[in-house]
Structure formats: structure tokens, C-alpha cells
Simulated scan of single mutants.
Amino acid sequence: MKITLKQLRVFDAVARTGNVSRAAETIPLSQSATSMSLADLEQHLGSPLFNRHGKKLQLNDYGRWLHPKVHQLLQQAEEIELSAHSGALHGQLIVGASSTIGNFLLAALIADFVQQHPEVDIRLKVANSEQIVDDMVNLRIDLGLIEGICHSHQLTATPWRDDHLVTFCSPQHPLAQQTSISLQQLEEQQWVLREIGSGTREIFTMATQQKLHHLKVKLELGNSQAIKQAVKTGLGLGCLSTLAIASEVEHGELVALSTPDLLISRELFLLTGNSQHQSELSLSFQHFIA
């Protein structure tokens, strides 16, 4: 059997992009050379790897089984190539993080790491926790950090840091001057919350479902910044990480409320793939942010 790394790189690129022409741009090869390499690989294996729908290619069951193995093999081949150079860290790491982690914790850590290792390229993708888990499972990112609970058996979720959610309002809100807010008062208010699928929303729902029985959700928004702006207008109460509202509270733009009957703590998690090879770069970055 004469399977080449070139054919495997083509297969990996097509699996990630779902399209031969887009895959050709990432390798880079001509479109015809990309198509030919994929056809040669399928011929060597004696089986197609994709279901074809016009120009769109979707992995079939055999392709889904093969892709993680090929992805791991290519990572190992890249490490072999890098080992021929100096002992300095090289390569690109794609990290996915949910909103609070990406915007208020990880960006600064990445900047410090890259400053120490100038030949490293780290790409940060910020999305909600559900999307980060999906990206990890489908090998679109190398590491994930989420605020919610990981429901995939294909990933290992390791506790990373502790965090707290706090209920807040605008300085002009009727509750802003009160020293303690009851559950009944919270039920009477309108809320501006993160969207379904975000880690913050999942933890909030778990913490309130037995305490706030008639929650009035006025608005659902896809990021913390939008929620803070809506709450500043007096539209309702919000609930976000203390990290996300620290600056606005310090400058008097938002008020953190005391809710002794609703204290919400959570763990932030680092995600790694159960069958995914951990490169030296990945392990070094994990150690750095620990």
C-alpha cells in the first residue's frame, strides 16, 4: 500500500472544509491535484471516504472513523519536522474558548505565552460552550476552555479555575440601592440573559430552576458586552461572571446586587480530546495557563 503524507493532508483538508477547492487553497495545491490525491487515497483504501452532494463532500462512516487517526498522524509528522530545528517551540495552536474565558482571561495569557515563544502562532476562537465542544469533537480546534458542562464522552474536561456569577443592574434600577435582594424580588424583575447553549446560561439555569419558578426573560443575547449594554438602559437584570462586569462596577456603570439566597459558583474547564495526540506545543501551553 502506497499512501503518502500528501494524500493524508488532502484528506484532512477536505474533511475540514467539505469542499475540494477550499481544501486546495489551504494545502496549497491545484484543485485538480487535490482531487487526484483524494481519488488515489480512496483507491488505495478500496473505499470512498465521503458522501458527495454536488460540490459538497461530507465524511461517511468510514471517513469519520479514519479522520481522527489521520489528524493525529499529521500532527506527529509535523513534530518530526519541527524537531529538526532548534529546541524552541514552533507551530500553530488553535484554541477555542467560551465568551468569559476568551475575552477576560485567555487573551492576556496568550499574549504572554507568545511573547515568550515568538515562533509560536496561537489562534483564538471565541464562541459559546456548546460550539467549543462541537469544534473539539470535530477537530476544528486543538484545545478548548469552557464555562459550562461538557456532555461529550469523546473529550476529557479538566477543572481549570473557579468563577462566580453575579446578578447586576443599572445604577438607576429600583433594586440598585438595596443592601439585600430576596428571591421574590428577583422573580418580579425582567432578565437579560445569555443565549441557550452558552455555559453561563446553563449554569444560571441549573442554579435557579429550583428557586426562581417564574423567570421573566425579556431578552437573550449572544455575548456579555451586549447584555451589559442592555442592562445599562434599565431593560432588566443580568447575570454574568464577576470577571465580565468588574470594570463597569468599578466605574459605577453597573451595580452588583447582593443576593444571599442565590449564590452561583462554577468551575471553568480545559477540554482535550481522548484520542487526540497532545503535541509539545499544546502541553507547554496547558502548563503555562495552569
Rank of each mutant, 00 (worst) to 15 (best):
M36G: 03
T100E: 04
S241H: 02
L271Q: 03
S152N: 08
E220D: 02
Q189R: 04
G199S: 05
T100N: 11
L281S: 01
G197C: 11
N19V: 03
T100I: 10
L237A: 01
T272D: 06
Q115K: 15
Q76K: 15
L235M: 13
E250R: 14
T100L: 08
H287I: 09
Q58P: 07
L193A: 07
I245E: 03
I146E: 00
G102P: 01
F288C: 08
I196A: 13
N19L: 04
A88W: 03
D261W: 01
L89Q: 01
A77C: 07
D134M: 03
L283E: 09
E81W: 06
D162L: 12
Q276V: 12
D163I: 00
W65I: 15
T34Y: 00
F50L: 10
K232R: 14
Q178C: 11
E81P: 01
L271M: 10
I110W: 02
M1R: 13
S282G: 11
L165D: 00
A13R: 08
K216L: 06
N223L: 08
T259L: 00
P68G: 10
I203D: 00
E79W: 05
T233M: 10
Q190V: 02
A108K: 15
V137G: 04
H164D: 09
L215Y: 01
M206L: 13
L212N: 04
V20T: 07
S129W: 00
T26S: 13
L8V: 04
H67L: 10
T208A: 14
I27T: 05
A39L: 12
G236F: 08
N128Y: 10
F285T: 06
L193V: 15
Q178L: 15
H53Y: 11
I203P: 01
Q278F: 03
E202L: 14
L254P: 06
I227V: 04
D112E: 15
Q210H: 12
E248K: 07
R194W: 03
A77W: 07
I94Q: 12
G199M: 00
S32R: 12
A33T: 09
D261A: 15
Q58Y: 10
A39G: 07
T156I: 13
S129A: 06
S152E: 05
K211M: 06
H67N: 11
K216Q: 13
H287P: 03
L74K: 09
Q76N: 03
V120A: 12
F269R: 12
E253I: 02
L57M: 09
L66E: 02
L143K: 01
L45I: 07
M1A: 14
T179D: 12
Q185S: 09
A108M: 05
T158G: 08
H151M: 09
G87K: 09
P159T: 10
W65A: 15
L29A: 10
R123H: 11
I101D: 00
I146T: 04
E187I: 01
C239E: 04
L257F: 01
A97D: 06
Q72D: 12
A23E: 02
K125P: 03
L262D: 01
D134H: 06
L268A: 01
